[in-house]
């Protein structure tokens, strides 16, 4: 019997290694495909180059890095306050009648496919921006607006968890000292839960940087350094998404190299968020 148990345990152990194995495989293959090109043209020319002309062999992705950060920054600008508002609402203010609406609404926001968001941005936001603010409409602004809703579920679920896991004595103590409900929330609860909240924002940021399909549909995809929120733009992800279908040779390698950069950014953010949320548990 014990032999059989040992074998079963080994099998489960191997299964349990699947996620880490996949992560390793992803890392390996992205690097194997992308690294040669980075080494060939030099990391500096690749990361800081401003020209992306695959047919001529120039592969500079700086405008895409910049655009990724512009779009993400814009998304956070709206996403953070909205996310915090919903979090506080759910954790502290919620009247049952609205709660019945808000929770499913947030779960749905998480469930809606990104192509649907992209489409909605395209048919609703883009014309609005074009008519009222000028420019091509397909723009960083449109992308940021859509993204800010796409990252809401991430921000809300994680920061609500960290608010809810605070000991009830925090709240009782502050209220007993005569603080108003709002002061208690703002000066006691939010600061106490801050590592979890920051982690949620970082994960939301990762989600925003990584979003592809919706961005292809609404950013306009022009490769250029962004100068205004009304410019159209191409991000790291959309660069891969648009050109992967037909790229080959160096061009394909350059797309994988773009993936490496994206992967690095995401892994950095992930590690930071994991570190922060571990800390908030202790």
């Amino acid at each position: 019997m014990p032999v059989k148990e040992k074998i079963i345990e080994k099998i489960f152990f191997l299964i349990a290694l699947s996620s880490i194995t996949i992560l390793a495989l992803i890392t390996f293959f992205i690097f194997e495909e992308g690294l040669p090109l980075i080494l060939k043209i030099g990391p500096k020319a690749f990361l800081l180059g401003e020209r992306w002309i695959p047919s001529k062999g120039s592969f500079g992705i700086f405008p895409m890095i910049a655009s990724s950060f512009w779009v993400t920054f814009g998304a956070l600008l709206l996403g953070i306050p909205l996310g915090l508002a919903c979090t506080i609402f759910l954790a502290e203010l919620i009247p049952p009648s609205i709660g019945i609406l808000l929770r499913p609404a947030i779960q749905l926001l998480a469930a809606i496919p990104s192509v649907i968001y992209g489409f909605w941005g395209l048919i609703v936001l883009v014309p609005l921006i074009q008519n009222y603010l000028g420019g091509p409409g397909l723009s960083i602004l449109a992308g940021s607006l859509v993204l800010s809703f796409m990252i809401l579920p991430t921000i809300i679920t994680i920061s609500e968890d960290s608010l809810k896991s605070l000991p009830p004595s925090y709240k009782a103590g502050a209220l007993a000292l005569g603080a108003t409900h709002w002061q208690t929330i703002w000066r006691v609860l939010i600061p106490a839960a801050r590592s979890g909240i920051v982690a949620s924002i970082i994960l939301g940021m990762g989600r925003a940087i990584g979003e592809t399909m919706a961005m292809i549909m609404i950013l306009g995809n022009a490769v250029k350094m962004p100068t205004s929120f009304l410019d159209s733009a191409r991000t790291l992800t959309t660069n891969i998404g648009i050109e992967m279908g037909y790229a080959s040779g160096d061009h394909r390698q350059a797309l994988f190299a773009t993936g490496i950069v994206l992967f690095f950014i995401i892994m950095g953010l992930n590690t930071l968020a994991i570190f922060l949320s571990r800390r908030s548990v202790h």
Partner: peptide, 25 residues
């Protein structure tokens, strides 16, 4: 802890990266 870390990281990997990986692999 290693397995959990791997799982958490995998959860954050953007789908386009999964696409690239699936494509080569």
């Amino acid at each position: 802890r290693v397995i959990r870390f791997g799982t958490d990281c995998l959860a954050g990997v953007p789908s386009i990266i999964f696409g690239l990986f699936g494509f080569v692999f």
